[in-house]
Amino acid sequence: MTLHYFFAPCPRGLESVLVTELEQLGASSVRGRDGGVQFQGDRRVCYRANLESRVASRILWRIATRPYANEADIYNIARALPWNEWFVPALTIRVNVAAIKCPLRSLDFVTLKIKDAVCDKFREITGSRPSVDTVQPDIRIHGFLDAREFSLYLDTSGDALFKRGLRKTAGDAPLRENLAAGILNLAGWQPGIPLLDPMCGSGTFLLEAAQISLNIAPGSKRSFAFEKLKEFDKGLWAQLREAAIARQKPVVRQPIFGSDLYGDVLADAHANLSAAGFSEIVTLKQANLLEISAPAPLGFLVTNPPYGVRLGEPERLVEFYPKLGDVLKKKFSGWKAYIFTADPLLPKFIRLTASRRTPLFNGALECRLLEYKMVAGGMRKVRETDITHQAD
């Protein structure tokens, strides 16, 4: 099969995780870039990356990269491409453009020139042109410009890959699924090791952990844009999907625990886990974080505190964070705690020393993943070894 160039955007800070993941899926020439990973692969790699990547936001197939000077160059580069060989004009399209250090004045005008070029090429070859649908298009076309080069991509994913087709209700400011999966990876959590999210919200960490524990491919319950392309290999896709489903593990209860102070929020998590078929896998209960105990002697606590939204004013947060630190010290000895936050007050007021601070972005919001090893000095090596053995 022919090798193509691809780019997989991901939440910033997770590029190294995605590099490893794509290499495991058979990609070649894998290189991390700011905000994503570029790689090479054939049709099989493209399909597998869409089906199995937990961290990528999309899989973009690069169809052109050329130097440019003005908008006329953009139009001519786009018009020269064989769009009619890739999809039929009955499909709807949407064009998105992003740029860094681009000298052109209007990205909206660039977007229009690309759309015109695609439609003009179709009209010239077939006598008809695709319609534009900005909400739910069949085909997404992505343009990217830097100071000198213009690149065009066909989006093989369709809806963003973090839309797993599982979650029925989102709640306030939900964490994107691929960011949650990346955080679990960075934390070093493995299936079989107890995992607790004591402020679980709508349950994103729990949903991702359940899928990882059962080896469920995140894209196994949804469709993709590549299925609408002319070169779609239906037989290969069926083979890859069936193989992924065959690798799933039996649905049995896992040491995955979630709690939240608010009943309405916990109802969202219940609904999401139930819709995904994970009700019997994850243990949920309504509880105040400041009053709970560790559900196992060793494990990982991973959470995204709902700063401001559900806890109220900054004064209450300044009061809450030291209490959170006390609970971790007193009740979670032997655990590793990972707190994902955009709140700059938390590291200062929790009164614990972070062993690692990893910069991550939740969309455009700069955050930190703070690691706290809740171990007594002499027990550190023993307990970390014990945690590793629990994963075996």
Rank of each mutant, 00 (worst) to 15 (best):
F361A: 11
K336N: 15
G263P: 11
V318N: 07
E315L: 06
R357C: 14
E319Y: 08
S259I: 08
R380I: 08
L298R: 10
D326V: 13
V375M: 14
K249V: 03
V318P: 06
L369M: 06
G325Y: 03
L360D: 00
I292A: 03
M374F: 01
A354G: 04
P347T: 06
G378T: 15
G258Q: 02
V282F: 05
K348P: 04
G363Q: 02
V282D: 01
K348F: 08
Y338C: 05
G277F: 08
L317K: 04
M379W: 15
E384I: 05
L369I: 05
F340Y: 00
L317Y: 03
S259W: 04
D264M: 01
G334A: 01
F320S: 05
G277M: 10
L365K: 07
P305H: 00
E319C: 08
V265S: 11
L289G: 05
I281M: 05
L346F: 07
L365V: 05
A267Y: 04
M374E: 04
V265G: 04
F332D: 02
P314V: 11
R351Q: 12
L289T: 15
F278W: 03
N272C: 00
L284Q: 06
C367P: 01
V309D: 14
R380C: 07
L365R: 14
V375I: 07
A275I: 08
L345S: 04
R357W: 13
T353K: 14
T341M: 10
Y338Q: 02
L352K: 08
F361Q: 07
F257V: 10
K336H: 14
L290Q: 01
D264T: 13
L261C: 06
K330P: 02
P250E: 11
P255W: 08
L290E: 01
P322A: 02
E371M: 13
S333Y: 15
F257C: 03
G277D: 06
E319I: 02
L370R: 05
E366A: 06
P295G: 03
D264I: 02
L311N: 13
K249T: 02
V375L: 12
E371H: 13
Q286I: 12
L317S: 12
L317T: 07
R368V: 06
